[in-house]
Design a protein around this nucleic acid. Structure first.
Length: 376
RNA sequence: GUGGAUGUAGCUUAGUUGGUUAAAGCGCCGGUUUGUGGCACCGGAGACCGUGGGUUCGAGUCCCAUCUUCCACC
């Protein structure tokens, strides 16, 4: 259940209540695709880093180890030891990212496993069954994520199909939640808005799915090839027709600047691989801008990644040492780098919440977006 | 001392019967990364081919000398 606490010129401050605890929004979900944050960051670490929600992936966990394994091991919470809310992505994004390995029809999608090549069929019912087996707190609807730019006709047909799939998802999850053997009988379902870059399709689709009265609504299919301004424009057109009393999730976005702009347009929830993936490649977010710790200029730099950062990495380690670890391919480098960036994102969200609480979000945004987009 | 091998980018090597700006991997430098098929990907700098002569229109490639390193034999 979502409670809107405050609206600061469009930016929303809220609480999202789940059976695994209450999420303060706006929030950033930390991506643990295969049930773990890449870079040797543990569930314990996530608590330290200020993570509120962990995100995992249906497709990946189905392929390996298998959702049956996870169910028999007590569900993803028990399995991973993360006891906070878990959102599972439905596999819809893999319809996009594994495009060369799949075939789509009305029933669903046939993938060739990226692990061993075997055929995997996933439709709305299969995705819901897997997510139910995982026992996540929030299940995402099985949708089709289309690459931009897309033809209007294709975007429209895809949208319609995503709606039909959503109805099937809703029916299936209701059935699964009523079963005695189900791990989380209160599993929630979020619907996903599609429509590529066509605002009329976006609005029409959003209205359609709003009628289904789901636990939350996501905007999907953005940051998949279109210009940033186009993405902002789509968000601006869709949020006014999203239910005010439901949580709003912008899937897969984004940079700190993207997040500031989306919050301003009324988004509550985010996830992105950027802080973790970029960290592993040495690209770090700091209070003064973006740095690449691979750069030669840090060879002798004994200062922390960010002098204004309260993270456990900045409390102890220098840029020179971390750079050395990264250059030497030491595993520790990945851990330290990812921990720093996740802390940055989680605390960016905390700062955003505070700014909204204090009615100064716009000033906060204006000040920060200049700095956070800058490379130093 | 004699005979044989070796010498090409910071490192390890490829360079065809001599033929335009000498190639690759690693390393180095810079960049990319948006519901993770990513210890990935893209780009760049860097070598007067041990040195000195010679043959030739033309030499990393052939010849001579010299030096380096290695091996074998005395």
């Amino acid at each position: 259940m979502y409670k809107l606490l405050k609206d600061d010129k469009g930016a929303r401050r809220g609480e999202f209540v789940t059976n695994r605890g209450t999420v303060q929004t706006p929030a950033f979900m930390n991506v643990a695709t295969a049930g773990a944050i890449k870079g040797a960051v543990s569930a314990e670490d996530l608590k330290t880093l200020g993570c509120q929600v962990m995100l995992s992936n249906t497709y990946h966990l189905h392929v390996r180890p298998g959702d049956d394994v996870i169910k028999k091991c007590g569900g993803l919470h028990t399995f991973s030891t993360w006891d906070g809310p878990i959102l599972t992505d439905s596999g819809g994004f893999q319809v996009f990212s594994l495009a060369s390995l799949r075939h789509i029809d009305e029933e669903g999608v046939t993938f060739h496993s990226h692990v061993d090549g075997r055929k995997i069929f996933m439709g709305p019912e299969e995705s819901m069954q897997i997510q139910s087996n995982l026992g996540s707190t929030i299940a995402m609807a099985f949708d089709e994520c289309v690459e931009n730019p897309a033809e209007y006709g294709y975007a429209k047909d895809s949208c319609k199909r995503t709606t039909r799939w959503l109805v099937r998802c809703k029916d299936k999850i209701k059935e699964l939640n009523s079963l005695e053997t189900t791990i989380n009988k209160e599993q929630m379902l979020f619907g996903i808005n599609q429509g590529c870059t066509y605002n009329d399709l976006r609005i029409e689709h959003m209205k359609e799915i709003a009628d289904l009265d789901l636990d939350g609504y996501a905007i999907g299919g953005l940051a998949v090839g279109e210009e940033t301004d186009v993405m902002y424009d789509v968000i601006e057109h869709v949020t006014p027709v999203m239910p005010k009393g439901k949580i709003r999730y912008l899937m897969g976005v984004g940079t700190p600047v993207n997040i500031l702009n989306a919050v301003q347009r009324g988004i509550d929830l985010f996830d992105c691989v950027m802080p973790s993936r970029n960290a592993r490649h040495g690209h770090l977010f700091t209070s003064k801008g973006i740095i690449n710790i691979n750069n030669n200029k840090y060879e002798y730099d004994m200062t922390p990644i960010d002098e204004n950062c309260g993270c456990p990495v900045c409390a102890r380690y220098s840029k020179a040492y971390i750079r050395h670890l990264l250059k030497s391919s030491e595993m520790l480098s990945q851990r330290l780098l990812v921990m720093h960036n996740l802390w940055f994102y989680n605390h960016l969200m905390e700062d955003i919440r505070k700014a909204i609480d204090e009615d100064r979000f716009l000033e906060f945004k204006k000040e920060k977006e200049e700095i956070y987009g800058k490379r130093i």
